[in-house]
């Protein structure tokens, strides 16, 4: 007790807040981690009574689960690349080129967030039935791209706009072609914003379940879709193992992209000029 008395009150309050913060945000995750390695954990026990890896071998041997993981990453990669190709030119245009109805086009991307996703997916499903895109790979990729259009356009656009035009001008004066200027000056300087947008695109694709479920069933079952059925059908240990496997790659992504994932590029993307 004497130790706590010696501390200033503000330190103690900070410490309590930190504890609440840690328990609230990471308690549920730690719980899953413990569950994943537990053999037996009956109700009143505070910690697992025995440890085991049996569900790990079950999950890793189940072909449909490993296939779902491969599929999810394939889709996320394709979605990220495609939306880069589609959205970056638009983002650059919004930042640099003057054209009629620019603002109307720019703000129309907000529609992807303003209409409830469930309602949108249902309407798209009706459309996809007509076009024969139900239960196809293309259909899933398209559904995922919807969620990324806004991020992929707004954030890189703000990043392009923040590159000083004087730098581009001086490179032009030195004799560089417009494309060289873009490739060697503009693009590298806008890189942080583009990376943030790409990371979000990748994550949102990995995370998408509702639309994939509606459009991809029965042949295309991604990780989150399988996760739904695991929650319902299997004991919580199996669900926990799967959760850990599913989370690991995004944590790796987080570590790799940490340097770039700052709030600044993100915040700039939502303040349009």
């Amino acid at each position: 007790m004497w130790y706590f008395k010696a501390l200033p009150t503000s330190k103690i309050i900070q410490f309590i807040c930190l504890s609440v913060f840690l328990i609230f945000f990471f308690g549920p995750l730690l719980n899953l981690l413990l569950l994943a390695f537990s053999g037996e954990w009956q109700y009143p026990h505070r910690l697992p009574t025995s440890w085991s890896l049996e569900w790990w071998s079950f999950v890793l041997q189940d072909q449909s689960i490993t296939r779902a993981m491969g599929l999810s990453f394939l889709i996320a990669t394709i979605v990220t690349l495609l939306s880069l190709i589609i959205c970056l030119p638009a983002a650059y245009t919004f930042a640099r080129i003057q054209f009629p109805m620019r603002r109307f086009f720019l703000f129309s991307y907000l529609l992807t967030n303003a209409f409830p996703k469930m309602g949108l997916y249902v309407a798209i499903a009706v459309l996809f039935y007509r076009l024969g895109l139900m239960n196809t790979f293309v259909g899933i990729v398209l559904i995922h791209i919807i969620n990324t259009l806004m991020f992929m356009t707004w954030i890189p656009s703000a990043a392009f706009a923040n590159v000083h035009q004087s730098q581009e001008e001086s490179a032009r004066d030195a004799g560089a072609s417009p494309f060289q200027v873009f490739w060697h000056i503009t693009l590298p300087m806008a890189k942080p914003g583009i990376i943030v947008a790409s990371v979000f695109t990748f994550l949102s694709s990995l995370d998408e379940a509702q639309g994939t479920f509606l459009v991809g069933i029965p042949d295309y079952r991604t990780m989150p879709v399988i996760m739904y059925s695991i929650i319902v059908d299997y004991p919580s240990t199996a669900g926990a193992v799967f959760s850990v496997i599913l989370t690991a790659p995004t944590i790796i992504l987080l570590l790799v992209a940490r340097k770039f994932v700052g709030g600044d590029a993100l915040a700039a993307g939502f303040k349009m000029k």
Partner: peptide, 10 residues
């Protein structure tokens, strides 16, 4: 960075 379904499950 945690997938939604997993967070809810946890």
């Amino acid at each position: 960075f945690i997938p939604g379904v997993i967070a809810i499950y946890g």
